[in-house]
Design a protein around this nucleic acid. Sequence first.
DNA 1: CGCAAGCGGTTGCATACGTAACTGTATAGA
DNA 2: TCTATACAGTTACGTATGCAACCGCTTGCG
Lengths: 167, 167
Amino acid sequence: MQPLAKRLAKQGRLVLEDFLPYRLSVLTNTISAQLARQYAERFKLSIPQWRVMAVLGEQSGLSAGEVGVRTAMDKVSVSRAVAALEAQGRIVRKIDDADRRRTVLRLSAKGQRIYAEIVPIALDAEHALVRALGQGDLQKLSRLLTRLQEAANALTPTPTTRSGARS
Amino acid sequence: MQPLAKRLAKQGRLVLEDFLPYRLSVLTNTISAQLARQYAERFKLSIPQWRVMAVLGEQSGLSAGEVGVRTAMDKVSVSRAVAALEAQGRIVRKIDDADRRRTVLRLSAKGQRIYAEIVPIALDAEHALVRALGQGDLQKLSRLLTRLQEAANALTPTPTTRSGARS
DNA sequence: CGCAAGCGGTTGCATACGTAACTGTATAGA
DNA sequence: TCTATACAGTTACGTATGCAACCGCTTGCG
């Protein structure tokens, strides 16, 4: 950690510590590990499960596929998270009558209570991260992340549903 | 994706798409998956292995523990990556005479050739990401990431060696 | 010395994850 | 209507990953 350094790889040489993908990876992992620990300890929730609850808390009645799109998770991850959440009695699954391949997902009453507990924790965590940034910095960060994500998407061969990930 | 949105979670509600840890996670995963694919296809290298080579290419003769610090990987990951790289004939392991618990690591000639091939690819990938950003944006991004990393470190209970991660 | 405690590194085990194959349902076209 | 194809979601399988126990070596202290 240099005090006021360039911190982006320079011509020709590659210094891992300054390499953007590496820095993003370490940062993300630090944050995700921290959040995962909290969710797991307090609610026995994995990050995929937490993501599913997060989208269902905002918009109820989505199908598994729609959840996948909104959480950037592949369908297998969604399927597993949904199965676990259902086993815990936190969500309810119902086969769509109009199309019996689809299942419609909702938070149960219990799931809603947990959701209500988790949201402030998540927002606090986010706040703790951005506390050190000014208001202008925050918007700048947001814009930069959007641009980087677009650039990253442009690199991937199949810009179909992206998958995996943490947080 | 809103055209010019706030994109950071607002008071009370939690919109996953705007939640900073989530956005970072998706971004990192997109990038890491892309890099991992390239390394794997062209060099049969995993990201942990690539990281080990990256630090040894910059500074030869480190111990496994030192590699761990510089790559933000835990010692198990380092151990496995080193074992694989040695099996591929890309690095050389030598027991330290002064302290026979330690092993000193170096790239082999073959390893150095591969390293020389990979560095420009990695830098190109980084360049493709930041291409859309201006020079000022780049420095801003770098500073923001540094601040966020510091904030994230402050949250973790044991600020000892951080682990895991991709890229 | 001799032994307890600590450190560098590895291995075993249990879990998480992604890819691909599979089940059941819907649908377009002959 | 019958059949081929596509789609939603699940299961199976191989690999990767983290934690904890472990092995050998070193060192501090009696």
